[in-house]
Design a protein around this nucleic acid. Structure first.
Lengths: 274, 274
DNA sequence: GAGTGGTCTAGACCACTGT
DNA sequence: CAGTGGTCTAGACCACTCC
């Protein structure tokens, strides 16, 4: 219904975008259904195709629709967020080290997150050595240029095209080299994960800190995570410190921001009795 | 230098955007400096103004520039992220309850975050009552429609135009009503904060959980936080549980994603001696 | 008033998808 | 092949800022 009593001062393309948004959230245009084509919207509204495209761009930035070249523009399914409880997860990873190897083989970190079984997952690991950048060196409290083992991981479900996670881990090369098996990515996935790997060189992790930021994806992240234009990613830098107080691992993990929820549960100390 | 050996298949507007991006990250166009105007870029590159605008839109989505109506397009300053350490912060807030009132007055949560003094901050609080939605009721484990006290807060620095935070807190109305002073927003800012308010009705918070997601801002958040188009926000839902196991507060806080870093420090249990 | 970015038109050709 | 979205042009008028 047009409102005659008061002028609508907003640009026409914004008005069209909001009209379409309302039809989507009302369920008139359900997830997966195509929007009217651009020429059709232009004809129906009397606007130029350029203005119609401006409206559709708004809807894309709001994450409501996805345009597919040659096919049409479709309503996106509301994303189901994967919940990551890192506090419990890190403790589980640490405790796993003293399980028998049989059990360590059966379940890794990604299986823990997704509930999927080992055989449903595609696991990739790639090791290389790099010289520490200023920033990473400062985190490790070592000299810039120190030799690091750089380990890249990504995991995807075999049935899905969208990868689930992607992470990079850095270790001090000279420390890890005490156990040469740790230098070869052919030994991945290592039963028991990083905590077990570190235990073979006498390291026990004492505490971990997660540094969470959100930012636009880099071009390579766009490629790997298949994010839509305008989507952001959550990036978590995990810094692990050993019982001797030295930083033993720095790892960066990225997740699609619209499909991820992080939960941190915090126990507070009781009040002193007065 | 043009590369003649291999064709550049990418759209021209993307090429222009990347050329300008390189000049920004190289420091040739420092923060705050204006880009060439749209007509000038069009003339210089031989492209239409529409294509030039497409390139500038890319740069805006990457968070590199900000367009100002009637003035020009400017390189954005790299955002300094405010670090929020919620674990330490929540403990500090709880411990503060037993400080003398004198000290409680001097420093509130925002001062804790920013290091600014009370007199440099503009504080707003607005209370209302609402009926619990399905979702919030489920979190409180009460019936949908239960009467809640809804408290909105926002804080800004007096010298800055950009607000620092915005949050909404829900409490069970009937529980809070035991102390009528808690129902009046004129008593804000309350010395000692929410933990002290809850202590007046006999509630001690036992644990808290943070649920972190990133998403595009709602229109009202755009208005209040003055985010740029394409920016996202971090939204934290904090659920506080009392020592009796009941959920006592549900609060949502939103922060500009490009100016915020969250840090969670996690102590792991030591390995059992074998 | 001159210059800026914001909106808008009426076309055009292209790459890609389906039949 | 027809239909879709992606790129692109060459204009126009507007609201806004600064001098």
């Amino acid at each position: 219904m047009a409102d005659v009593t008061e002028r609508d001062w907003r640009p026409r393309y914004v008005q069209l975008a909001e009209e379409l948004r309302d039809r989507i959230v009302n369920g008139e245009l359900p997830a997966g259904s195509p929007l009217p084509s651009e020429p059709e919207l232009a004809a129906r509204t009397g606007m130029s195709r350029t203005s119609v495209r401006n409206a559709l761009r708004e809807l894309r930035e709001w994450g409501l629709v996805r345009a597919e070249q040659g096919r049409g523009t479709f309503v996106r399914a509301p994303k189901v967020r994967v919940t990551r409880r890192n506090i419990e997860r890190y403790q589980w990873e640490k405790d796993r080290v003293h399980q028998p190897e049989e059990m360590r083989r059966q379940k890794g970190g990604t299986e823990y997150d997704t509930g999927l079984e080992v055989h449903q997952l595609q696991f990739h690991a790639e090791y290389s050595t790099v010289d520490a950048s200023e920033e990473i060196a400062a985190t490790f409290k070592v000299q810039a240029g120190t030799k690091l083992l750089r380990r890249m991981y990504w995991t995807s479900a075999k049935t899905e095209d969208a990868p689930l996670s992607m992470s990079v881990s850095y270790l001090i090369y000279d420390a890890v080299a005490k156990n040469p098996a740790l230098l070869d990515d052919k030994n991945e996935p290592w039963p028991g994960g990083t905590h077990h790997q570190l235990s073979t060189i006498g390291v026990e992790v004492d505490h971990v800190s997660d540094h969470v930021i959100a930012r636009p994806p880099t071009p390579s992240e766009v490629e790997i995570l298949r994010t839509e234009p305008g989507d952001w990613i959550l990036s978590i830098r995990k810094i692990s410190t050993g019982v001797d107080g030295k930083v033993v691992e720095v790892a960066d993990a990225v997740y699609p921001a619209d499909r991820t929820e992080l939960v941190y549960g915090i126990k507070l100390h009781p009040w002193e009795k007065k």
